[in-house]
Design a binder for these strands. Structure first.
Lengths: 333, 333
DNA sequence: CTCCGTTGGGCAATCGATTTCCGATATCCG
DNA sequence: CGGATATCGGAAATCGATTGCCCAACGGAG
């Protein structure tokens, strides 16, 4: 099973010590700066070290120091175009602290999420950043993992007793609704996505709340359920049958919005020029589809997650605020 | 700097041995099956192990066995919607061999790619899977890294002396051109993407080749350069100024195609109903944008990369063939 | 009944760094 | 100048598993 390829041996700290005529302890101290070392000796060590182009064995170090300088990142589904953005942000933020990212995609299945946590714990990662795939089913595994390593929930939350870094979803919805009403849309509907994701339900809740506040006599126009790309076009059509005077549709994410936009285009051709569609997350899909969307401050989110891990930040800072990105899908035309 | 959080100690193999009244060696052998062990003793070990819910320390194991069961995956840019697909495929394929993925995104910068390789080598990954961000600049670092660990190039190639797993790009272009001519398009143009990616230049080359073969008297209509989302619309417009009778545009990837499609839609409105646009990679952008595209067999690609790493497969198997996915962007209408 | 071979358990070395403890100088002060 | 105190280098323990080697027990063959 393991490959028998003979690669050349890398020098160890012993080799460096031998070449410099010093002890391994001294070499270690020079290289890690753990304790002051005489300048001439330090120089000798450095010379020997890069004569051999020595690089310390991270595995041995991890065993001794009980730190792997690695964080696990568990995400629901990397095909969901939001998560590449999150992965990128986390990767950037952790790199600044010399941490590497062990990525696991659980494919939206809580059981795989659980085994991902086990895997990462076995690997003794210093922390696990997780966007829980299910708002309730993910909680027990999270809780039990939290006894073994630092857990930080990011973007989504399954257990609000554990640390989390999140963005204010309601504020995003508010920005969209303000934009839509400011551009003259009165009757606005909402198409949701997988309600078992905490962010989705927060978006739907926020829509209902603002919708009722704005128009108390009318019950909010909400389609709840999980509408991925393909089904969102048909759900849009049935929405428009049910409420034909709808002028704008707020979608729970960009992918759904893209499907809705196909229908919207038909509408526009049929003489409803002002019809608007909005997405959420400002993913590549929003960019390429000319969709108005909401951008989450992902760098800050990732930084906050790192701060929580390091114990720098408090457990529950006020959530971060997203911003609006206006594009053609809400244009007047 | 390190967090002082006191987590409970995990039991070691010594603890299990003590509880079972046996030696660590025996416990190890039972748990790893390295050597046959008496059935009653084996049972005693297993009981003790899960009484303590013992999980072996992967770090210690790695140090001893000189294997980390980890592969590094270096990608140019996770925001490019193709790479999430690749990451997913690699993650799946490696999981089946109990390998974890250490992901590094180099942001299309060769220097960061080089330091990513160093990082992964320091971490003693068993193999590095890399999609080199630059067809020439990436080569030296790859070559030198290959002396320390098994390198497998995946999707893109920078050094054809090193193992690689790739898909036949030319065949994808051929499928697109066949489809376009079969649906009645004669004058077909091409918009390229970053020519320093090996796949991009292969796609452009293939287009030129087939284009000349089909119509020897006419020089191929090719716009080369790196046209990301935003600029692809304007490049499309200038293409159409230069060759006004163009009936279809083949784009080097889905993101570019999405931009071209915006222009194509204007065209259609202006009375050119048959105007077609195609993408490449069949990413989420193609799905949401209703783009005809080419799908690469990514599971097979990832499996082949794993086989190359394990030494199961030969160094250069014939490249895998992609398939055509027809959608609305090449419809008649 | 003896001898040899096999099976299976344990001791101790090992992987490669870090870190504790110790001792030898060097420094400082009264 | 003696003694307390830093300072700094080295020997050896340590992290937690795997594994080479030894040896006891057992079974089968002669």
């Amino acid at each position: 099973m393991p490959k028998p390829v003979a690669r050349d041996q890398r020098p160890t700290i012993q080799d460096v010590a031998a070449l410099a005529g010093l002890s391994p302890s001294t070499v270690s101290r020079v290289l890690s700066g753990a304790r002051p070392v005489g300048p001439d000796i330090a120089e000798r060590v450095r010379q020997a070290a890069d004569a051999l182009s020595f690089r310390p064995n991270t595995v041995a170090r991890s065993l001794r120091t009980q730190q792997t300088s690695t964080v696990g990142l568990v995400i629901p589904d990397i095909i969901n175009p939001f998560f590449p953005l999150l992965v990128q942000a986390v990767e950037r933020a952790t790199r600044e602290h010399d941490l590497s990212v062990l990525l696991v995609d659980c494919g939206n299945e809580p059981e795989r999420e659980t085994s991902a946590l086990d895997l990462l714990l076995d690997r003794r990662v210093d922390a696990i950043f997780i966007s829980p795939c299910h708002s309730t089913a993910s909680a027990p595994a999270l809780r039990s993992a939290s006894r073994r390593a630092r857990i930080v929930q990011i973007d989504r939350v399954a257990d609000d007793q554990l640390p989390f870094a999140i963005v204010d979803q309601g504020h995003g919805i508010q920005l969209l609704l303000e934009h839509l009403t400011a551009t003259g849309r009165q009757h606005i509907a909402f198409i949701g996505s997988d309600p078992s994701a905490s962010t989705s339900s927060l978006r739907a809740d926020a829509f209902e709340r603002f919708s009722v506040a704005q128009n108390p006599r009318q019950s909010p126009r909400v389609m709840t359920g999980d509408f991925s790309g393909a089904s969102s076009a048909s759900i849009t059509r049935s929405l428009l049958e049910q409420w034909p005077d709808t002028e704008a549709i707020v979608c729970a994410n960009d992918v759904i919005a893209a499907g809705a936009l196909l229908v919207a285009r038909e509408r526009r051709l049929e003489g409803l020029p002002g019809f608007a569609v909005t997405g959420f997350d400002n993913t590549m899909v929003a960019e390429t589809g000319d969709l108005t969307s909401v951008q989450q401050p992902l760098s800050e989110l990732a930084n906050r997650a790192v701060d929580l891990f390091l114990g720098v930040a408090a457990t529950e800072p006020p959530p971060l605020l997203p911003t609006l990105v206006v594009r053609g899908s809400t244009g007047p035309r």
